[in-house]
């Protein structure tokens, strides 16, 4: 419980830093920290494989890509702030929380309690078992999606098509 509270507080602080930090590089570094903390939260939920994938794919590959693009484009200047949009955005978030939080903090009554997890729950074996039996068609479609993304990125970033 204490571990969860520490992780939750830190991840909220770092995600606020992502949004309210004016320097893009600092935002990206705060996002890396947030992704690591969420990976640790996955580990506390006995999702070991997904947590490791989170660190490898998100905090590793995707964030390196973001930092690479930031440094390639080198935006330099701090962006300006518009107080009207600032108020509007915060208001939208607060309204969203007012809708979601009472519902979510109530929903535990509808669900069974924490299921006793077996020894192999969340392991690579059980994930692969599910992935290659029940979800084999989405898996293949995901590989086609990745191929399309690779081709699209090459075509878009090329100087002259």
């Amino acid at each position: 419980m204490i571990l969860f509270l520490i992780l939750a507080g830190l991840s909220i602080v770092f995600s606020l830093l992502v949004v309210f930090q004016r320097n893009v590089i600092y935002s990206a570094m705060a996002l890396v920290a947030t992704l690591f903390l969420i990976a640790v939260l996955f580990l506390t939920l006995e999702a070991a494989m997904v947590g490791i994938l989170q660190i490898l794919v998100y905090a590793g590959a995707i964030m390196v890509l973001f930092l690479f693009v930031i440094m390639l484009l080198n935006p330099g200047l701090l962006e300006g702030r518009s107080i009207a949009w600032w108020i509007l955005g915060s208001l939208a978030a607060v309204l969203l929380l007012f809708v979601l939080v009472p519902f979510l903090s109530d929903s535990g009554r509808l669900l069974p309690g924490q299921a006793p997890a077996g020894g192999s729950f969340g392991s690579p074996e059980s994930l692969a078992q599910s992935l290659f039996t029940d979800f084999v068609l989405p898996f293949e479609i995901a590989s086609v999606l990745l191929l399309v993304a690779i081709v699209g990125a090459v075509v878009l970033a090329k100087r002259e098509v």
Binding site: S15, V18, V19, T34, W86, G89, A92, A93, V101
Partner: peptide
């Protein structure tokens, strides 16, 4: 939900 709302704020104000 809190992290999601922070993300929505970021999309709107940045």
């Amino acid at each position: 939900a809190i992290i999601f709302a922070i993300g929505v704020t970021g999309v709107i104000i940045r």
